[in-house]
Write a protein that binds this DNA or RNA. Sequence first.
DNA 1: TCTTAGTTACGTACGCCGTACGTAATGGGG
DNA 2: CCCCATTACGTACGGCGTACGTAACTAAGA
Lengths: 241, 241
Amino acid sequence: MTAGGRPAEPEVIWSRPQRAGRGPRPAHSRESIAAEAVRIADAEGIEAVSMRRVAAGIGAGTMSLYNYVPRKEELYELMVDAVSGEYEFTAPTGDWRADLLALARQTRALMHRHPWLPRLLSPVYGFSPNALRYLEHSLECLAPLDVPDAEKLELVAAVNGTVATYVAGELALAERARALPWSEDEEQGVRTAWLGSRLASGEYPRLAAAVSGTGPVPGAGLDMAAVFDRSVSRLLGAWGT
Amino acid sequence: MTAGGRPAEPEVIWSRPQRAGRGPRPAHSRESIAAEAVRIADAEGIEAVSMRRVAAGIGAGTMSLYNYVPRKEELYELMVDAVSGEYEFTAPTGDWRADLLALARQTRALMHRHPWLPRLLSPVYGFSPNALRYLEHSLECLAPLDVPDAEKLELVAAVNGTVATYVAGELALAERARALPWSEDEEQGVRTAWLGSRLASGEYPRLAAAVSGTGPVPGAGLDMAAVFDRSVSRLLGAWGT
DNA sequence: TCTTAGTTACGTACGCCGTACGTAATGGGG
DNA sequence: CCCCATTACGTACGGCGTACGTAACTAAGA
């Protein structure tokens, strides 16, 4: 242990007790810290989340935060778990495909509310309390499906992968524009112009054909929710009967 | 334009000429810059890639790099495009599912060679030259498939999403351990212990059942390449006839 | 009850980071 | 041939994550 009680050994933040027996009672909690970080990320983007900002936001000194969160990466884990608690699980209907589609829609809505979520999901890869609740509920929904349990987890992973990539694509343009000094329209403009000039070169005839008719970028006149439903449903159709 | 000739307007880096007509001939190239950044990221992780490191690596002053790369984000675009050039496209066989599976395997191998790639893919969302080559080749492979072109692009996106998420999961443990002062085994140990203790609580009966038998973390005794092939094949099976 | 050891709080400091800006050198287009 | 766009790059600013040291606090053990 270092002087400040911060361990230099591997650990999972969830297995640490919030309150140790000995010293003064902690003035803050993981929940309030996570909530503040989520608030900042929602309002100003994930790059605005710093240990200093979060500490200041809850009215603590910068280094006090390290009593609750050993590293910034753990702060990310807290954030992901916090928003994962926004799922509303309803009882399985017996139609596992409908249930999983409903879950996927919730995930998409969650990511639209918290656009930084897709970028944090892959580095984290943890089994946080709310992630476990999510997995357990998914398996409940999959009870009618007659495949080995291990494959059910594969199915859940596949759906989540598709959802994450799909929504990341949806959000990419807006997120990039928000982090740069120009607008989403300008960003889309220069990218469309560039793509148009390349396609006009004739080097990519099939791509040019595929892009003509629809816009080159997601969201250009398409009903994204419908496309989303179709993509997820198609994936779900590959399992089972 | 600022004094240094660095534009503050939206632009796509690929539409900038490498050499302007006027001044001294540039001492470096986008290719060598991208190669150096890739070298650093491969050896020490993406977090070791900084403008200073890359500039020093090619023997340039830090701020000289900004004559070639207007922002760090554009450096990431160069990196993604550079490794995208490692694809080896072979003529379509007529069996589009086999062709796309082969492409997906190449993507997986690419991501294993460059473990930072999955994390850079979503923020970038660009149509770099090599990305266009990739898309064009994918559409060539999909010529035998009788669905609208727009859906073919959806299929390619779905496959890439699945691949990216799958490989990101494969790599997460090792990548996280590399960025922290302890080993991958220690990392896996504490996470497995935590998961075990939660599952033993009885709150997640279905998850506990699914996890018993196989290891809780990917790669615990499984043939990951086979699981990968199965996942991608299943997805491909959802399209077409 | 009193000590004491573990814990919380937090100020200071170090070595990084991205990049704005100013200046000197360079060499092709008019 | 000369002008000026362009390259090269040093300096500097404000921010970052976090190591470390110290003071205040409180529950557990004597």
